[in-house]
């Protein structure tokens, strides 16, 4: 059995009828990106030297943090560059095939669910919004006695409790408002340090209003510090093929 000279690194799925020019997009390891047309769906890929993907070579490379970070950023940047020209479904990092033909064949087995998902994300972008509690402003009243001191401590604790409740309510309200403006929304409630961690699929024509809500929230809810990312390709709004299989 002969080993091929190249492997096929895949970035994202595109509608086949989309006229996508991937020229000028830089992929991983500096490789050019090309679009491989399939039946109904296309795939953006790079042909990479198979030599780079020999286990021993790759594990040496991956041990270098800067190289690994660069690989991840390059995968992301290529997806974002193609996303700026039209709808995509991003693929998870390191989706690699022995050939473009094999990649297209694999795509065909999931054709229906991928096509549906592409229709759903067309015209929309993903926004990530995180809210954490702003650091409390200190009110350091001088305690003239031990009793005063203990009273102040208790008052501060009560303040903190009510402030947290108010912040949590503000975060939930913000999420609801943002979700109402979105095609789809997901709130991650597993991180206790964050009052809000949400992803929103927002139509382009709604993104102005979406950002207005965030600006207003920054002005009004002064207990919250917001971290907003977007517009990004819809990483969180893709079908879970493995579970369906």
């Amino acid at each position: 059995m002969t080993s091929p000279a190249h492997v096929c690194w895949a970035y994202c799925v595109l509608p086949a009828d989309r006229d996508t020019d991937a020229r000028g997009v830089e992929g991983v390891i500096g490789a050019p990106v090309r679009v491989v047309p399939g039946r109904g769906l296309s795939l953006a890929v790079s042909d990479l030297p198979a030599e780079e993907f020999r286990d021993d070579v790759l594990s040496d490379r991956l041990a270098d943090e800067r190289w690994t970070a660069g690989l991840a950023m390059a995968h992301f940047n290529a997806i974002e560059a193609i996303f700026r020209t039209g709808p995509v479904l991003p693929l998870r990092l390191a989706t690699v095939f022995t050939s473009a033909e094999r990649a297209i064949a694999m795509l065909a087995t999931h054709h229906d669910r991928l096509s549906e998902a592409l229709v759903r994300v067309t015209g929309s972008a993903q926004w990530t919004v995180r809210a954490t509690a702003s650091a409390p402003r200190g009110t350091d009243a001088e305690a003239s006695s031990g009793t005063d001191y203990l009273r102040a401590v208790a008052a501060r604790r009560d303040d903190a409790v009510s402030r947290h409740a108010a912040d949590a309510a503000a975060a939930t309200e913000l999420h609801q408002t943002l979700a109402d403006l979105s095609v789809a929304a997901e709130r991650d409630t597993t991180s206790p340090s964050q009052l809000l961690s949400g992803v929103y699929l927002v139509r382009t024509e709604q993104s102005g209003r979406f950002q207005d809500v965030l600006s207003r929230a920054r002005e009004q809810a002064d207990g919250l510090t917001l971290d907003v990312r977007g517009p990004l390709a819809p990483y969180s709004f893709v079908p879970r093929l493995e579970e369906a299989a």
């Binding site: 799925v13 998870r92 095939f97 022995t98 694999m106 795509l107 893709v238 079908p239 093929l241």
Partner: peptide
Amino acid sequence: KGVVIAGDI
């Protein structure tokens, strides 16, 4: 996140 398609590598 992102679509998980089993690559053959």
